[in-house]
């Protein structure tokens, strides 16, 4: 049995439609019109204990709505949710003791308090005895390297330090499942890397199941072994990261620098992406032509330098968003 089980989950929102201008505003008061938006539509998935899964999709795909239903913030219209065998709607409080949440766009910490005071407050929220909270803070301050700023008011912290504190606050009660909604939003590459390695360590040391939503391909590639892609409220892909790469990385990018000019046109399986005389960039569909065939076409003796790479994961994900598979 999975630690998170979602069956036929659906959620719609009723949105008021207003025609433009003052006339439209008056009309909408007298005779309001509404449209129903299906934010989540018949979503099914199951997550096992200790997994780090990426739950991704374009803006407005239904990621946040799903995560909010899983954590008991929103009521679903249809379907069932079980997180640690608890129904978030019927037992919101019971579930809250078992899960942690970090919303990158929403602060949970009191900004005028120090991280230490905030952690103590969170300890009280989860009814943890003082001595245990102290012990936990000591453990987490070491793991998340908070010594330098644990006694500085949150409002004076950098964004990276604040996110680290937000994650620690969500771990005070030792949750079994952690929901991270865009935890690296707005962070610089160094801090992002730091947060990622901390998430990895946390998953390894505490066996915490991590449900991650992010627009950052780096987060997904470096942290997750499984990816669920949602678009227009529906799951369009639920697969391992390896499978995603294996099935969708059937195209290679070949960049070559040649001694003499090469005249190459698009052929079946080879697309010329860039031709600058002595520099060529080709896309080789390896289901139709091998990379060796492409090199033979270019004449290996004519090649000074060559670079063969995969299509970036970001492009693969973008094409899945666009095509909807």
């Amino acid at each position: 049995m999975g630690i998170i089980e979602v069956k036929k989950l659906s959620k719609t929102f009723k949105v008021k439609i207003k025609e433009k201008g003052l006339k439209g505003s008056i009309k909408s008061i007298i005779k309001p019109k509404y449209k129903t938006i299906s934010a989540v539509n018949d979503v099914n998935f199951e997550i096992e204990k200790g997994e780090i899964i990426a739950f991704i999709g374009p803006n407005g795909a239904g990621k946040s709505t799903t995560i909010k239903m899983l954590t008991g913030i929103l009521y679903p219209d249809a379907g069932s949710i079980k997180v640690l065998d608890i129904d978030p709607i019927k037992d919101r409080k019971k579930l809250a003791y078992q899960i942690g949440t970090v919303f990158g766009q929403k602060e949970q910490l009191w900004t005028h308090l120090t991280p230490y005071d905030n952690f103590k407050f969170f300890g009280a929220i989860y009814d943890i005895p003082e001595s245990r909270v102290e012990k936990k803070i000591d453990e987490l301050r070491e793991l998340f390297e908070l010594d330098e700023f644990i006694n500085t008011p949150v409002r004076n912290l950098s964004l990276g330090q604040r996110i680290r504190c937000e994650i620690v606050a969500s771990l005070i009660h030792e949750p079994k499942v952690l929901f991270l909604d865009e935890p690296t939003i707005g962070l610089d590459p160094v801090v992002k890397e730091n947060i990622r390695s901390l998430i990895k360590r946390m998953n390894k040391e505490y066996k915490t199941t991590i449900f991650l939503t992010s627009h950052d391909v780096g987060d997904i590639e470096k942290l997750c072994k499984r990816v669920i892609i949602i678009n227009n409220g529906m799951v369009v892909l639920d697969d391992t990261m390896d499978n995603l790469k294996y099935h969708y990385l059937n195209k290679k990018i070949v960049e070559v620098k040649t001694k003499e000019k090469v005249n190459l046109d698009d052929t079946d399986g080879i697309t010329v992406l860039k031709d600058k005389g002595y520099n060529l960039k080709l896309e080789v569909d390896i289901t139709k032509k091998s990379v060796t065939d492409a090199i033979k076409l270019l004449n290996p003796d004519n090649i000074i330098d060559i670079n063969i790479s995969n299509i970036p994961l970001e492009d693969i994900i973008s094409s899945i968003y666009k095509e909807g598979i």
């Binding site: 409080k93 019971k94 929403k106 602060e107 949970q108 929220i125």
Partner: peptide, 12 residues
């Protein structure tokens, strides 16, 4: 403004 979210995920 959706500020109830942070209270809804707490067991209080």
């Amino acid at each position: 403004t959706g500020k109830l979210d942070s209270f809804l995920v707490q067991p209080k």
